[in-house]
Design a binder for these strands. Structure first.
Length: 443
RNA sequence: CGGGGCGUAGCGCAGCCUGGUAGCGCGUCUGCUUCGGGAGCAGAAGGCCGGAGGUUCGAAUCCUCUCGCCCCGACCA
């Protein structure tokens, strides 16, 4: 993408309404624009990151055996009356009437909708286990939206739903999501800690929130330090038996404010105690027959009809962008992890109009693009300083800096955004390294 | 939903108390000079001062209502 033809409305100054760093940076980098309280337009740069985050979620869901579908954002109130939630859900639910005066709602979640899909089509226990998910826009009419996309009213959420023949099988489904979540967040450069969460009326130990530690987090969290640096399980695991891995990550103390148990935390060795703030980016729970029973989602088993056991598993996709920025930024702007960066490389032409610079930049742009890299070619006639500042601001991981001075010796400069490291080397060498990877050039 | 605050140019703000022809910085546009870390000079465009009503000879300024937004708290993916 040539910057001169891209739509990137950067703000030099901080918008007054943005209080926290991710919100400020998302506005300043032209990722989003607020159109109402808690409702945002996703501008091209923001959308690119959103898509990359989605892609990772999709890949990890596929690995865990979940199948994607897409359900409507507007749901019939009657469906929610079946589960009893239409009356229970408060003002957070946006209620709408259509021209025939039928009650609709903009879905804040989709247990009823997916249960309806399930019961209409699945009749045999042989079709279980089943895990269906979607990535779609949800709406919760928050009394007080804030922190940009971290707590908007309209938000993009991945919600998966598992269907199993009994609780033991449902626990396995739960474990698959548990492990998938650790892998998902890890791929985005985040350290997510699973913390025991409130299970509501169901009880038991099957609900966890996945928390990213960040100073600006919404809630206080308490955990054993070792959990924070525990590596993600990766993909080489036995998806049919994950209990060991899950146990390993739930054995140590970890709880959010609401679930905090001072006595239990007291047993954590003093030097391992961690009190911090956190952002919830995922929430998984098992709720058994809560929806399947009233909505009559049953299958025929060998011994007759059984009501299916369900669980649901959410990831705040749009919220994740805020969380990633909270966890990865500096004074100059965003530092995108390579896996979700809107562009892989920025080619910076320091002297557009200079024949040698133009030619070298075009060559780099073409070669990197052909190699599958997502390239932002800064071909504008801004001054170098302004270009450096904006490329740092939007956080492209690698900046290929091409100017007349270096080029006179056949050299260009490669800067890594995360470390600030800048190295000068022969043009072709730098290009090769960017194309073949590892992208970091040797000192 | 309680408490507080703010709506004046694309962004950040002053002006309001004490009514009298709407300002500053950044950005934008033109030109010249610049050009390796957010350039300099000269010029220009851009605002029914959130909306409605009222008071007044006269309202951005005072009064009433209303809409929107932000912050603290309670609530929440």
């Amino acid at each position: 993408m040539r910057l001169s033809r891209f739509f990137l409305p950067l703000l030099k100054e901080n918008p007054a309404e943005a209080q926290i760093v991710s919100h400020r940076l998302m506005l300043r980098t032209g990722m989003i624009r607020q159109q109402a309280a808690g409702i945002y337009a996703w501008l091209p740069l923001g959308l690119k990151v959103l898509r990359k985050v989605e892609r990772i979620v999709e890949e990890e869901m596929a690995r865990a055996g979940s199948i994607q579908l897409l359900m409507p954002t507007l749901q019939l109130a009657d469906l929610w009356r079946e589960s009893g939630r239409y009356e229970d859900y408060g003002q957070e639910m946006l209620r709408i009437k259509d021209r025939h005066d039928r009650d609709l709602l903009y879905g804040p979640t989709a247990e009823e909708a997916v249960t309806e899909v399930f019961r209409a089509s699945v009749k045999s226990y042989k079709d279980l286990p089943l895990n269906l998910y979607q990535i779609s826009w949800k709406f919760r009419d928050e009394q007080r939206p804030r922190f940009g996309v971290m707590r908007g009213r309209e938000f993009l959420m991945k919600d998966a739903y598992s269907f199993d023949v009994d609780e033991a099988s449902a626990r396995k489904a739960y474990n698959r999501m548990f492990i998938a979540y650790l892998n998902t967040f890890s791929r985005m450069g985040l350290k997510a800690v699973p913390m025991r969460a409130d299970t509501g009326p169901i009880g038991g130990d099957l609900s966890h929130e996945f928390i990213i530690l960040a100073d600006t987090g919404e809630s206080a969290v308490f955990c054993h330090k070792d959990l924070v640096d525990m590596p993600a399980p990766g993909h080489d695991v036995d998806w049919n038996d994950l209990q060991g891995l899950v146990d390993q990550r739930t054995a140590l103390y970890a709880a959010t404010e609401e679930m905090h148990d001072e006595a239990a935390f007291g047993e954590v060795p003093e030097d391992k105690k961690l009190s911090a703030r956190g952002i919830e980016v995922g929430h998984i729970f098992y709720f058994g027959e809560k929806y399947s029973k009233p909505m009559k989602a049953t299958v025929n088993g060998p011994d007759g009809e059984v009501t299916v056991h369900m669980g649901s598993y959410g990831v705040g996709v749009s919220r994740l962008l805020g969380a990633i920025i909270e966890a990865s930024h500096d004074e100059a702007g965003i530092i995108w992890p390579e896996s979700v960066a809107p562009f892989d490389v920025a080619v910076i032409n320091l002297r557009p109009g200079d024949e040698a610079c133009d030619a070298a930049c075009e060559k780099a742009y073409a070669a990197l693009t052909a190699a599958g890299r997502d390239v932002l070619y800064n071909d504008t006639d801004e001054r170098p300083g302004a270009k450096f500042a904006s490329m740092d601001l939007i956080g492209i991981p690698w900046q290929l800096i091409i100017g007349p001075k270096g080029l006179a010796e056949g050299k260009v400069e490669l800067k890594q955004r995360a470390t600030g490291e800048r190295q000068t080397a022969l043009f072709d060498d730098v290009l090769n390294q960017l194309i073949t990877g590892p992208k970091k050039i040797d000192a």
